[in-house]
Nucleic acid binder design. Structure first.
Lengths: 334, 334
DNA sequence: CTGTTAGCGCTTTCAG
DNA sequence: CTGAAAGCGCTAACAG
């Protein structure tokens, strides 16, 4: 391995001068600089980032820690990456597998030390577990959980979004709207928040809230949603609308409705949440709640930068606004 | 910050003993061990991974470097993660933004030094650029490009997959099949390989190959595909089948066909490539070529482990087999 | 503008 | 089974 002292010897300067040329932290005379760069080139030197990190106490790297790499998180990550890079830092993704044990491990101070800042999308940790995370590292939490006040946090307007989607379907004539993937008690606070919004929409319209229309799913996948909805159809419970708590769930619903011979939106209106890319392409277009991924990404990075600049700043808690995007899966679109 | 020497002092042992307890590299007497662990607990010590990395020359971390975080790569990453973790290493994702400049930078030896091994999904680099990557780091290349022989490499059976999908639609009665997203000359070798498979299917069936049916897309997104296909419809070119070079492209085709009032598969058969989750849920189900993500992930991790164990092993070049998954978007399914 | 010194926190090596 | 010394490769701080 070629080290800085090899380069220094080759160029006839001190190690410090090589360091200064490469990091631009102090001015170096033009001729000296040229000799150093020539030596770097000749020897094929590349700085050892691990050594730099240890000495400088800085890695110029931000981690985004997510439950899984695909779907929602992949889309958000692609929004965050350019914002982090714009500040001259690298973004790396790690995943926790939505497994509380792994999630705690990802949060171990040891692992966090590798980064200058961390964006953590909490999936399975409750407030108490988060409270045990004691680190001076700048952390911004993303996600729908309740978190200790001392953390910066961004969540979506879950109730509001669910209410908007449900009201929209009520206005379109639906009277028996399933809340697919929603729950009364759940490790995922998001599913209960969105259930509440679904209830609120009913109350506002003077419609009764029937618990049988809250349909949980066993696995939060399209497949799980498909099976759950097919079970409802088989049970004979009449319905004319489906509010899916996420677009991934809505996708499973689309499949189940098609297989059951139910037409969207004629027989059943359908709305989702997250506004994934796919929702605008699946015919007839899935009405969804747009959480403004880009805006959330910007807020997240802004909070993290603020926190990295000032560890003592008061924690900020943002509820990101959402909006309804009407497509062909509900009446009133097109 | 609490360091090992703080712990050593607290426990009344040497720094070395603390290190041995924590890394399990040398046996430590039970009572000593207990004192050390108590001190670790009392002080809240966490090992400094950067220092460990520098000294040990090892990070126990593998990087998967991909063009973007979403869709295809996110799904593959979720398959790879558990395999890497099973060997006691961490997986991190970095992205190159499918931009040749960034891709070269991600490949800088400096950045690679941070990892014990790298899985690199080449998107925009040609063989010459890859040939300039000179590093002793274990690297396994993934993707459809041609790569220098000295690299381990896994690619899909692109021609074969395209041929299978196209032949299947020909058997189902299609005679005018668009190759949507395919190309004659392209930075993406994949798009030309799949075009060749489309041609082969025609030749085998004794059908003419009409260049007008090769429809490039400007951006490799569903939206780009949707627009390209709407343009074809508007042009009046008759067609009764669409081979989409990826499922993301196929999704855009589904939207465009629906908007044009063309029924799938009655008026137009449709097949994609990649077998993304979404393809099984979009009605009527998109016939696709399954690249066996899990198998590719296993091969990739196997090659990387072999390379990490033996830097001098001969490079292996794997063409991963694919299979046709028939769904409702083609006749002969269901 | 350039150099010298010291040391980041850990683990390898050698010694007991 | 435990310890002391040395140093991984780099940069902050201080000197000239």
């Amino acid at each position: 391995m070629v080290t800085m002292s090899d380069v220094a010897r080759e160029a006839g300067v001190s190690v410090m001068t090589v360091s200064n040329v490469l990091s631009d932290r102090r001015p170096v005379g033009a001729p000296t600089r040229a000799r150093v760069l020539a030596a770097v080139e000749a020897l094929g030197f590349e700085v050892n980032l691990t050594a730099r990190h240890l000495r400088a106490g800085r890695t110029d790297t931000v981690a985004l820690i997510v439950p899984s790499f695909h779907d929602y998180f992949g889309e958000v990550a692609d929004e965050i990456a350019p914002l982090v890079e714009a500040e001259g830092r690298h973004l790396v993704l790690e995943r926790t597998s939505a497994n509380p044990e792994h999630e705690m491990e990802s949060l171990s101070v040891a692992r966090l030390q590798l980064y200058d800042g961390v964006l953590l999308s909490v999936a399975a940790l409750d407030r108490d577990q988060l409270d045990r995370v004691r680190t001076p590292k700048p952390i911004v939490l993303l996600g729908e959980h309740e978190v200790p006040d001392r953390f910066d946090h961004i969540k979506l307007a879950n109730e509001e979004g669910a209410r908007l989607a449900t009201s929209h379907m009520i206005e379109g004539g639906s009277r028996r709207i399933l809340a697919l993937g929603a729950a009364y008690e759940s490790a995922h606070k998001m599913t209960t928040d969105r259930r509440v919004g679904w209830e609120t929409a009913h109350r506002e319209a003077g419609l009764p809230v029937d618990e049988r229309y809250v349909v949980p799913v066993t696995t939060y996948s399209s497949q799980g949603a498909r099976e759950a909805l097919l079970d409802v159809v088989a049970s004979g419970l009449p319905f004319d609308g489906v509010f899916a708590v996420t677009d991934v769930i809505a996708l499973g619903a689309v499949a189940a409705l098609a297989e059951s011979g139910l037409r969207v939106p004629d027989d059943v209106q359908l709305a989702g949440f997250d506004n994934l890319d796919v929702s605008s392409f699946v015919p007839p277009g899935i009405t969804s709640i747009d959480p403004n991924h880009r805006g959330v990404a910007q807020d997240a990075v802004r909070l993290l930068h603020r926190r990295m600049a000032d560890a003592a700043a008061p924690a900020e808690h943002i509820v990101a606004p959402v909006r309804l995007v009407v497509r062909g899966s509900t009446r009133g679109g097109r």
